[in-house]
């Protein structure tokens, strides 16, 4: 086998540069947040986290993510399939339209839903007549979050699917597999990393979104405050410890998905090793 790794000094140089970059832009800010959260000891931290308003904010944040992430995953897989496996006219336009929510300032993402569903908005009078509340209530928060996190899964999957081509799927189909079978058995295992990253990013952003949600939430304490909004409130109350404690809570919530990812990674690696050790026939029999 030919050597495909860099000389040791290059390797360490690259690692060092990457670490310095990550340190300056990521680790130090994080340390700042965590050190502030624990600056008055763990007792105060726990007290801040257990506060009822914080807990209700956590609940709302989880609920929001639980609705908007799956919705965007279904969309992302569908869009990636259509875009990566087929060629059609206007593909670039479609791709760009999918990217669009990223290009919209969070303030504006919130504002468009206000202009749509607010009392002065287009659908406002109709909604008021039927006593349906969308903005300044949970549906508005979910909508704004879904909008903001809209492109993540699709954007992660498309390059991966494109890089993979469609030979394997075509082979499966011509061997008589159904569309769903092909998707579950061939495509999904191939794209799982991309999908996983997409879900992680989407989830992290769904829980952390501030600007758009802030416009549509109405900030009613204990009711329509998500965790990021609650953080701002606490900070403005000069409750710095509590504010940063809530922020670390958010970081930890996002990390749960990462732990999940590591678990899957670890499991599949184990499986692969087992598989490699097994002769072909046994593997087929066990499958």
């Amino acid at each position: 086998m030919t050597d495909t790794s860099e000389p040791g000094y290059v390797r360490w140089l690259l690692i060092a540069v990457a670490l310095i970059f990550m340190g300056l832009f990521l680790v130090v800010p994080l340390i700042a947040v965590f050190s502030e959260a624990f600056s008055e000891g763990i007792g105060l931290f726990l007290q801040a986290v257990k506060e009822p308003d914080t807990l209700s904010a956590v609940k709302l944040t989880l609920l929001t993510a639980a609705i908007s992430v799956p919705a965007n995953v279904v969309f992302g897989v569908a869009a990636a399939w259509a875009i990566a496996k087929f060629s059609f006219r206007g593909k670039n336009l479609l791709l760009t339209l999918i990217d669009l929510p990223f290009a919209v300032s969070p303030v504006i993402s919130g504002l468009i839903f206000v202009l749509l569903f607010g009392t002065q908005g287009v659908l406002g009078p109709w909604l008021a007549a039927h006593d349906i509340k969308i903005i300044f209530a949970v549906p508005g928060i979910v909508l704004a979050t879904t909008f903001v996190t809209f492109p993540f899964v699709a954007r992660e999957l498309i390059p991966v699917m494109e890089a993979q081509g469609k030979d394997e799927e075509e082979a499966a189909i011509s061997l008589g597999a159904s569309g769903w079978q092909t998707f579950w058995r061939i495509t999904l295992p191939n794209i799982k990393w991309g999908l996983l990253y997409g879900v992680i990013l989407c989830n992290a952003r769904a829980m952390g979104e501030f600007g758009a949600v802030s416009v549509v939430s109405g900030h009613i304490r204990g009711m329509t405050n998500t965790l990021p909004l609650h953080v701002e409130i606490l900070y403005n109350e000069y409750q710095f410890v509590a504010a940063f404690a809530a922020a670390t809570l958010l970081a930890v919530l996002a990390l749960v998905t990462l732990v999940l990812k590591s678990l899957i990674e670890w499991k599949t690696e184990g499986q692969q090793r087992e598989n490699e050790a097994m002769p072909e026939i046994i593997r087929e029999a066990s499958a």
């Binding site: 990521l26 994080l30 947040v33 969070p106 990013l201 992290a204 952003r205 829980m207 952390g208 979104e209 501030f210 600007g211 965790l227 990021p228 909004l229 953080v231 701002e232 900070y235 504010a243 940063f244 922020a247 958010l250 970081a251 919530l253 996002a254 990390l255």
Partner: peptide, 9 residues
Amino acid sequence: LPFALPTAV
């Protein structure tokens, strides 16, 4: 984490 941390934080 830059996504998970609220931008204000």
